[in-house]
Design a protein around this nucleic acid. Structure first.
Length: 595
RNA sequence: GGUUCCGUAGCUCAACUGGAUAGAGCAACUGCCUUCUAAGCAGUAGGUUCGGGGUUCGAGUCCCUGCGGAAUCACCA
């Protein structure tokens, strides 16, 4: 039983015996005591004051007395207004630490038979990844790790947007300006190579529009009639008609992009259990249209287009199928939802997709519900905010994006500069040093993008590089490296990683707060999982690192005369390192042994 | 215009889902390396939580309203 649970039970019993108030121990408000007061757990007595017919402060006093007498955990208490601050016996914390040390899977919930499918990344194949994609990936993979830690079986899936007008634009531009160049020839990463033609397309398009406008047409007309756009639209038709040369070019260019993506994915540690291609799935969902019509959920207009009326649900009418029988985005998404369920029989299906599609997913989920899909209740749109620049939104077409490969490279280089400045590369060979820079650079970037509440937009200023101090990935990594040094020393001194809890009478406050946080770990994972929020873990591990550093500054380990205490502090350090490492793993971040 | 989300220190973010005197980091200033890694620790300064009402023992958090920002409302994806 957890400490919290035991305390709640005792409080519940106390309320019953003192005031004859029956309460469910789950419902009692027990919160962490603020740092400026003594104690670890605080019970707020205001809510029971009315029932007890006494003022909150009196209740706190009486309940405090009751607990010190009757509850085996409570050592002492302090009352501030209606707040009852409880201090537990230090021995309890010492035993807790020993428990944690003896529990190799601390934080991990045993598999609970639930299956979660998470859709991550979903790139377009006409341009390289940018910072926004990185947020998507980091968030998505972290959520997978967190769900796994919370007991889910997790399947990571990716749907590659490999067909459509966007890739046709790159293809047309390549035909026109490519001169038979290849990524190999130009020594350019494949995804960048193809992306360059997407940019070229838009330049040419703009040029043509200008010319048409100059010859007297209005802007809208010109944009519609630009020859290069017509070419792209024709190419899409050719593609849909399975025109062999078009398919060949399409495959060639997509492959270049995949080769490029693979390099980036490898660096950031992305991997998938299943990859869906839109070219395979874009026709799905048409059978669902018929099903909807039969069930009377959808209806047909005179021009044969199919619609759903969601005005009852507070939305509007929404097109499901065009009059000419071709699908729209949502048709396909209905189909892939069914396909996913066929493939995995998931309990939860999480879409990691930006908040610009909030409305779309709202519609999708409501339709599936109307169609009577039982799995619809388990669907969740993990909607995250955009990564914006000081100048506003990133736009691929206009080249105002922060490129993923470039920012990663910059972060790694910054890590190298910092490390060299601090003179911390002694004893590392070239390869180890390089690996360290990568660990630190990526750690800084991943932490930067996962520590913020997913819903909020992130402002990224390229002028100021991501920091390595304070609330950052490297700070936490540094704490781990520091502890590693202590553990190395403990090993050379042949200190046993074990201690006698009963022989220690009092804890230093910093020791107590570190153990308190170690004990909190499973709790935080549960919260992070239920909210699909890696930021919960990021905050936790920062807090843990911060508290440990406080302990490190205040308390000496190897100057301690009492060897049992020395051993206790080594164990405390070892467990902290372990939980830091594991928390960071949940965020997808590696931690070094030295830095 | 309708809908949804957001607005907290100069900047970037927290606040355990309604609890105490709203906390961290960056930037600024002051201390601390002959000691286990100073990418650290301690301290100073910094706030009308966008404005105005309401709900209650208690509101940054819930409700209403105004202001500001973002997204979306396509036979686009």
């Amino acid at each position: 039983m957890t400490i919290d649970k035991q305390l709640r039970d005792s409080i519940s019993l106390g309320l019953s015996e003192l005031y004859d108030i029956q309460s469910n121990s789950e419902d009692l408000t027990l919160q962490p005591t603020r740092k400026e007061f003594q104690g670890t757990h605080t019970f707020v007595t205001f809510p029971v004051a009315k029932k007890a017919g006494k003022n909150p402060q009196v209740i706190a006093e009486e309940l405090g007395n009751y607990l010190t007498k009757n509850d085996p955990l409570t050592a002492s208490f302090q009352v501030v207004k209606g707040f009852l601050n409880l201090s537990l016996h230090d021995n309890l914390w010492l035993e807790k630490l020993a428990d944690i040390a003896g529990e190799p899977d601390w934080g991990q919930t045993p598999a609970n038979q639930s299956m979660a499918v998470v859709e991550i990344s979903s790139p377009n194949t006409n341009k390289p990844l940018h910072l926004g994609h990185l947020r998507n990936n980091f968030l998505g993979f972290s959520v997978c790790n967190i769900l796994e830690a919370a007991g889910y079986t997790v399947k990571k899936v990716c749907i590659v947007n490999d067909r459509g007008i966007h890739i046709c634009k790159s293809m047309v531009a390549y035909e026109k300006f490519g001169n038979g160049d290849t990524p190999e020839k130009l020594k350019v990463k494949g995804d960048h190579f193809v992306g360059d033609y997407y940019v070229k397309f838009n330049q040419e398009f703009k040029q043509q529009v200008r010319e048409i406008v100059a010859s007297g047409a209005d802007q809208k007309e010109a944009e519609k009639n630009a020859p290069i756009l017509k070419d792209a639209q024709q190419m899409l038709k050719n593609w849909e008609a399975h025109d062999p040369p078009t398919l060949e070019l399409w495959q060639l260019m997509n492959q270049w992009v995949y080769d490029g993506f693979e390099i980036t994915y490898k660096i950031i540690g992305a991997n998938f259990d299943q990859i869906y291609y839109e070219s395979d799935t874009y026709l799905l969902g048409k059978d669902i249209v018929n099903e909807g019509l039969e069930k009377g959920v959808f209806y047909k207009k005179e021009d044969q287009s199919v619609w759903v009326d969601l005005s009852q649900e507070g939305l509007d009418e929404k097109l499901i199928l065009r009059g000419d029988g071709t699908s729209v985005y949502i048709t396909q998404d209905l189909g892939t939802a069914d396909l996913r369920y066929q493939d995995f029989q998931f309990d939860r299906l999480v879409y990691v997709v930006g908040n610009e599609q909030d409305y779309h997913f709202n519609v999708l989920f409501k339709i599936l519900k109307k169609l009577g899909r039982a799995y619809a209740d388990g669907m969740y749109h993990l909607s995250y905010g955009m990564v914006d620049l000081p100048s506003g939104k990133m736009k691929s077409r206009e080249g105002t994006v922060v490129d993923a490969d470039q920012i990663i490279e910059e972060m790694v280089r910054t890590a190298e500069v910092h490390t060299r400045e601090l003179g911390k590369i002694e004893g590392l060979d070239q390869e180890e040093a390089q690996k360290l820079y990568q660990t630190l650079g990526l750690g800084a970037l991943k932490y930067f993008l996962t520590k913020v509440d997913p819903r909020k937009r992130i402002l990224f200023n390229p002028e100021e590089s991501i920091s390595f101090q304070g609330d950052t990935g490297p700070f936490i990594q540094y704490t781990h490296a520091r502890i590693s040094a202590i553990l190395r020393k403990a090993r050379t001194l042949a200190l046993p990683f074990d201690f006698d809890a009963a022989a220690i009478s009092e804890l230093h406050p910093t020791e107590r707060s570190v153990i308190y946080l170690l004990n909190e770990y499973p709790n935080r994972i549960a919260i992070a999982a239920s909210e699909f929020a890696p930021s919960v873990i990021a905050q936790y591990v920062y807090e843990l690192a911060k508290d440990y550093n406080r302990f490190y500054a205040d308390v000496s380990i190897f100057n301690e005369q009492d060897t049992n205490k020395q051993q206790f502090r080594v164990v405390l350090s070892a467990q902290t390192a372990r939980i830091i490492k594991d928390s960071m793993r949940l965020l997808g971040i590696d931690v070094p042994e030295r830095m």
